[in-house]
């Protein structure tokens, strides 16, 4: 089945998805990889306030991606932005997604420990190495947080249009296509 989603999306809609479905998403998503995940957990532990901008990304999507960004004058431009290996975030993703209230994870390679059933999370795969073509569907950078972590580790708020085809490789029933 093909689905086109405008983000944010309800968990009810995500629960309809089955492995093998193709998804195209439009709206705002955020990038987060190793260091951003680490900091999301640290803030919780240290009772620190998250940036206010995190409020508007609830029920959107976490994209495991360390993009190449070019700064022209004062504008950020996405040059290449494919997915990174999700397995590196596997031990911390349930907690991070819970904190941010996220139910869509986009990456490559899948996540063995993702609590898809209880947290109602779907994992969507995009082929690794396809950073050039992915940049075509990212229409702009709306905001950035934690740039001090480095350009590829920061949380980029990306506007995407018909970003896909993303394949549902892990659905909320616990089914996974990974061997």
């Amino acid at each position: 089945m093909r689905y086109d989603f405008d983000l944010p999306v309800s968990t009810e809609d995500l629960m309809k998805l089955k492995t093998g479905d193709l998804i195209y998403i439009t709206g705002l998503i955020i990038t987060a990889r190793d260091l951003a995940h680490k900091r999301i957990l640290e803030y919780k532990k240290e009772n620190k306030n998250y940036p206010e901008s995190f409020e508007k990304i609830k029920n959107t999507a976490i994209y495991h991606c360390g993009p190449i960004i070019k700064k022209d004058d004062s504008n950020y431009k996405i040059v290449s932005a494919g997915p990174t290996t999700s397995a590196r975030m596997d031990s911390v993703e349930n907690e991070a997604a819970g904190i941010l209230d996220m139910h869509i994870i986009i990456g490559k390679g899948g996540m063995k420990n993702l609590d898809v059933k209880n947290q109602k999370i779907v994992y969507l795969a995009y082929p690794g190495g396809c950073g050039a073509i992915a940049s075509k569907m990212i229409t702009g950078v709306e905001h950035v947080e934690w740039l001090d972590l480095g350009s590829s580790e920061a949380i980029w708020f990306l506007k995407v249009k018909n970003f896909g085809p993303l394949i549902v490789t892990q659905d909320t029933t616990g089914k996974s296509v990974y061997k």
Binding site: L22, Y126, A132, S135
Partner: peptide, 24 residues
């Protein structure tokens, strides 16, 4: 589907002269 995306990416990277993968 994955092969087609991969081939499309090779083509687009070449056309735009941008890194095929963000991990250079």
């Amino acid at each position: 589907n994955q092969i087609n995306l991969i081939l499309e990416n090779f083509k687009y990277g070449k056309e735009k002269s941008i890194p095929l993968c963000q991990d250079t």
